[in-house]
């Protein structure tokens, strides 16, 4: 699920950036530092949408670095248990398949794949129905439901299922 929230961060800036572009430099550094990171609490920071305010800088003793408290608006993405996501399959093996929904990695074990889909090993390992009409392989797009999340301080990993109504392949690149 996506959220638009305000976060705060102390930015350390090297003195060489001081000048009339100070503000731009701060924002640029913030984006570089923050976008794409993941915190267990808020999820993945997708994009910074704006700066609320930049506080007074504080010169660090000894280094000359200045730290600015920056409040910024950003879009975060945090997966929740029970959430339905669309994801791209990245790897298929005997144990199931892995998929990515943006920054999130999702594993779907073979128990959570419909019973009528069989694993086919080979050059392109895939799960296929007996009549061959549906095939899950690398780069397939699937809709899945998250049934479990593992949230670490800097990492979120999910397991999902496609064994439910309206879940499964939504766009097969092979067919396209």
């Amino acid at each position: 699920m996506f959220f638009h929230i305000v976060l705060e961060r102390n930015m350390q800036l090297h003195p060489r950036h001081f000048g009339r572009n100070l503000r731009d430099n701060i924002v640029a550094k913030l984006m570089k530092d923050v976008e794409g990171t993941c915190s267990g609490r808020h999820g993945f920071v997708v994009a910074i949408t704006g700066i609320e305010n930049i506080g007074k800088g504080l010169i660090r003793d000894g280094t000359g670095f200045v730290s600015f408290p920056v409040k910024y608006q950003c879009v975060v993405f945090r997966p929740f248990k029970g959430e339905i996501l669309e994801a791209v399959v990245t790897m298929v093996n005997k144990m199931g398949f892995f998929a990515e929904a943006g920054p999130v990695q999702i594993f779907v074990s073979n128990h959570l794949i419909p019973d009528d889909m069989e694993f086919q090993s080979g050059d392109m390992p895939n799960y296929t129905t007996s009549d061959g009409s549906v095939k899950i392989q690398k780069d397939s797009e699937v809709r899945l439901k998250i049934i479990g999340t593992r949230v670490d301080a800097t990492e979120i990993f999910c397991i999902g299922t496609i064994k439910d109504d309206f879940l499964g392949v939504i766009n097969d690149p092979a067919a396209a």
Binding site: M91, N93, K94, M95, G96, F98, Q105, F107, S109, S121, P125, G148, T149, R150, F157, I159
Partner: peptide, 14 residues
Amino acid sequence: ALDALRLISMEDEF
């Protein structure tokens, strides 16, 4: 299954 990411190996599919 939550550990799955750490468990995959490059050599085979187990």
